[in-house]
Structures are given as C-alpha cells and as structure tokens.
Design a protein around this nucleic acid. Sequence first.
DNA 1: CAGCATCCGGTTCGATACTG
DNA 2: CAGTATCGAACCGGATGCTG
Lengths: 142, 142
Amino acid sequence: MSSDIRASLTDKFSRGNVLVKECPSRGVLQDITSRWAVLILFSLLDGTHRFSELRKRITGVSEKMLSQTLQSLEADGFILRIAHPVIPPHVEYQLTEHGIEVGKRVAELVDWIEVNIEDILQSKNRYTLAKSNKMNDSERSA
Amino acid sequence: MSSDIRASLTDKFSRGNVLVKECPSRGVLQDITSRWAVLILFSLLDGTHRFSELRKRITGVSEKMLSQTLQSLEADGFILRIAHPVIPPHVEYQLTEHGIEVGKRVAELVDWIEVNIEDILQSKNRYTLAKSNKMNDSERSA
DNA sequence: CAGCATCCGGTTCGATACTG
DNA sequence: CAGTATCGAACCGGATGCTG
C-alpha cells in the first residue's frame, strides 16, 4: 500500500468526509455513480450529443431515466444543456469543465473494468462454484 | 486517453462495450458503483478491516447491506475475506490486487469530489433557484 | 424531437429477531 | 462477533399518454 493513498485517506478523515452519512459529498458521489449517470458521463466524453443520440447510444436507458439523470447532472454542474429554440426542438448536452474532470475519472474506472472483464467473470464463476459446493457439503452432513 | 494499444485493438468492442445493455462490464460497473460498494472499496484502501470496523466507519450502512455488498465484491474478486475459526468469530476483509486497482480509481473520483464539493453545492443552489424562478414566470403568465 | 405527468410492478433497503 | 431470515416501507425504473 503506497503511503500517499493512506495519507489522502487520513486527510479525509480529519475533515467531514464521504464515509460520514451527513456529508454532502456522499450525495454527489451517488449522483455520479448512479446507474445511468456513469454511462452518460462516459458517453459525453467524446463531445456534444443530442438527447436522442444518447438514448440510442446507451442501450437500455428509458426516456424518463435519461432525462432525470441528465437533470441531476446538470444541477450538479457537470453537464451543460443547450436548447435551440426551434421546431422541432433541438437540445444538446455537453460536459462542463467539472464534467470533464469527473468523466475522465469515471472513464479510467470503466476502461480498467473492460480490460479486466475476463478475469472478473472467471472470479465470479469460481465464487458461485465454491458456494454451490458448500451447499452440497452442508446437505450431506444434514 | 493513453490506451492507444487497446484502442487499435478493439475500438468498438472495448470502449463502446459498456454502453451496450448486454455487456457484462456494465453489471460489474454497477457492482462497483453501487451505493455502498464505492465506500467499502474506499475504506479498505488503507488496509484490512473487520466487519464491525467497516460498519462503524461507513456511517449509515446497515448490517444487511454491508454483508451483501461485501459478498458481491468478493464474488467479483475485489475483496478477500479471511475468517479466523475462533469463538467469537473474527472476520477480516482486505482488497485483492484487482480491488486495489479499482479502489485507487474510485478514490481519485471521491477525492476530486471532496476537493470541489463547495463549487458543486453552489451549482446545485443556482440550479434550484433558476428552476423556482421559471416556476414563478409561468405562474405569472397563467 | 424533447420531455413531463401518472401509474404501477419489482427491487432495494432497513429494522428487527434470530443463529453459530 | 458476524452474520442470516423475514417482513413491510421506500424507492427505482419502465410503460403509457400527453404537451410545446
């Protein structure tokens, strides 16, 4: 364990920190790490996108959740919403400076996962296998 | 993005993958970014901790959610669970190699948030203020 | 096209009680 | 101490219908 990590951790403990329930950072952290927010931030890293583009790109997201999540990210100042006053409506979303910072960090996490996904899935299989073996053991002894 | 090796290798498989519903990376991403998992990973960065220690440290987590989240992180291979066969029970949790990698990236996100929390909260206030002004406007025109 | 309002099923979550 | 079991409550998230 490198000492700078420990240092940053202890530093955080001296102030109000995310591990404490009342800390506002925890709320923001949840906004960012919510189911769709992560994917939105990740998606917007390569530039501006329209609502419908995001909807197509992020498979499985519903209209409602997309708009809801975009709003909470906009509220936190991570996303800029540009509505062109035309008919039919044309709205674009892009990351703010803050949004880019957060997005980069999210992307590092996502990238790491994608690189290591095989390992992780294998681990998952080993785990469930071990579990079911245990189940059988206790059945035998019963 | 410094991962040009991977980019050339599998641009549409690696980077775009998590945006696709069926991709297993998305499930893992959700395990990691779930409400308590982020805080657990962050907490374990400074070393091994017992169940009760984590419970005390991560304010607001229930017994059930802590044990549940620890299990899913263990299944994904991010956490090692060491149960000492003594009475009363003594169980310790620590990050695996993978867990440290993920934890570091999570910590970078958390740290950034804590540093910028004031800005973010201000943005939030401005947003809700703008919202309520709009509400008043539309009331007036009605 | 973008997005809000409403309803509603499913999952998550927490409190409590209990076990090894 | 470190969990599991159970049971409501709360919340999430999707489908539908409607607006500008």
